[in-house]
């Protein structure tokens, strides 16, 4: 990964861009007058302020941390990150959102649970199966029966 100074530089650049975008968009929304403030005034002030602080962080870091040192820092991060876990988990959540209405709450919950416990959690497959099954049943009882949360039934609706 990268050292602290680099992190500050990259993130402040990102926030600087964001603040420019917000300031322009808020200006378009209409600042109104100070006597009669418009819808854009508040995000405009916050956007400009964000830009100013980002700039000061950017220059503050660049001035105090010479570039050479930042280059030297490169690749120093100690802890290895398990990217596979992060991506699999995020992917699973996105797929869950995608199939939620179509497959319904029960089926999609069962699928995401068995996947997460098995692929990311590293449990054996029969443990994953039992866990996913019990969580699905318990959550069905909790959300549908006890709380009447009216979650989508999806393709299973025809069966009930």
């Amino acid at each position: 990964m990268m050292g602290d100074a680099r992190k500050s530089v990259y993130s402040s650049l990102l926030f600087l861009l964001f603040s420019v975008y917000i300031s322009i968009e808020s200006y378009r929304l209409g600042l109104g007058t100070l006597r009669m403030p418009g819808p854009g005034i508040f995000p405009f002030i916050a956007g400009v302020a964000l830009g100013v602080v980002s700039l000061s962080l950017l220059f503050g870091t660049l001035l105090t941390e010479p570039l050479k040192k930042m280059v030297a820092e490169y690749g120093e991060d100690s802890e290895p990150i398990n990217w596979q876990n992060i991506f699999l988990t995020l992917a699973a959540m996105l797929v869950y959102v995608a199939i939620f209405s179509w497959l319904g709450f029960v089926l999609s919950t069962f699928l995401i649970m068995i996947f997460l416990v098995w692929a990311v959690g590293g449990a054996r497959w029969h443990v994953s199966l039992v866990t996913a099954l019990s969580i699905t049943i318990a959550s069905y009882l909790l959300f549908e029966i006890a709380l009447d949360a009216q979650l989508p039934k999806g393709v299973l609706e025809a069966l009930f």
Partner: peptide
């Protein structure tokens, strides 16, 4: 391994409902 899928699931369902 069991706890984290549950936390994620609750967050997703919670925000949906």
């Amino acid at each position: 391994a069991i706890l984290f899928p549950l936390i994620l699931f609750f967050c997703l369902i919670g925000s949906y409902s």
